[in-house]
């Protein structure tokens, strides 16, 4: 019995001494830091995705507190909600930012962009990009090795096995832009999510002449300019042999979608019944 008592007493003593030691060391070596940093960091999602352009959430918190406002780097993942809370912590007014989503601007699926060679290397777009123009021959198109999927911290982008193209899950995408930075061909663009997640965009970025582009891919934008003419809001411009829709001007009338001869303009999340379809003019309707 006495052994038991000795043991309990000895362990308690050791515990008390260790606790006292720890307490005094913690006091002695305390690092003075703006307490707001901890508060801001607690508000951030903590995924350390790098979407803000900094190494992690903690770094963003430090940067925000150091600036004293939220006009600098911001958290695209937490979006308005989080940034408003942060603004109140550091005592400034928050201005609403438009939520964004990643959009893949290539429609060169296996069916549309026939393979003319066969890649047999590591699954890295960066490497494939350094090796050749791509299996289809299009030097602007998606290589399909999935660098974007590996960059995504939220599991929001995946390669569709039937088309070989990345597909973005609107629900999961936080618009952090990690995939866009990972893509060696800058195919992925961050666009406004749009009302009810509806958006119209040109799904091609190739800068080659129409005939060359068409030879590599059936879905390529050939720079014909029909959409530019049909657009009533002057939202579409033609640069480097492909069209681009300015999402601030676009009113989602979808006239361009019907006009496009190659189906390069995609309208997503519109109710399917409204879409006029001709065999030539297949519109990619998600959900």
């Amino acid at each position: 019995m006495s052994i038991l008592i000795y043991a309990v007493v000895a362990l308690t003593l050791i515990g008390v001494i260790a606790a006292a030691l720890l307490y005094f060391t913690a006091q002695k070596f305390k690092v003075e830091e703006d307490e707001r940093i901890g508060k801001v960091a607690a508000l951030l999602p903590g995924a350390n995705c790098g979407g803000c352009g900094l190494a992690g959430c903690r770094n963003l918190a430090e940067a925000i507190v150091k600036r004293g406002d939220i006009d600098g780097p911001s958290c695209p993942v937490g979006g308005n909600e989080v940034m408003t809370k942060i603004a109140s912590v550091i005592g400034v007014e928050a201005v609403a930012a438009v939520p964004k989503v990643a959009v893949v601007r290539c429609a060169g699926s296996f069916a549309a962009a026939k393979s003319k060679s066969q890649y047999d290397g590591i699954q890295s777009c960066a490497y494939a990009n350094s090796l050749f123009s791509g299996e289809s021959g299009c030097r602007y198109g998606c290589l399909g090795c999935g660098d974007c999927t590996r960059a995504c911290k939220f599991d929001a982008i995946s390669i569709d096995k039937t088309t070989g193209l990345p597909v973005v899950d609107d629900e999961k995408c936080t618009g952090c832009g990690a995939c866009a930075r990972a893509c060696p061909r800058s195919i992925i663009e961050l666009r406004n999510k749009g009302p009810k997640n509806r958006r119209v965009f040109v799904s091609c970025v190739n800068a080659e002449k129409g005939a060359v582009a068409k030879k590599n891919c059936d879905n390529a934008c050939i720079g014909c300019g029909k959409c530019v003419k049909v657009c009533p809001f002057e939202a579409i411009s033609l640069d480097k042999n492909h069209a681009y829709i300015d999402f601030n001007k676009c009113k989602m009338c979808r006239k361009c979608v019907e006009e496009c001869p190659t189906g390069a303009i995609h309208a997503v999340n519109f109710p399917p019944k409204k879409v006029v379809e001709t065999p030539q003019n297949v519109v990619n309707v998600e959900n």
């Binding site: 290397g121 590591i122 960066a126 490497y127």
Partner: peptide, 13 residues
């Protein structure tokens, strides 16, 4: 293993 593929990516980056 495709060692040189990975090494080239590393070397380039």
């Amino acid at each position: 293993r495709p060692l040189v593929d990975y090494i080239r990516v590393g070397k380039r980056t």
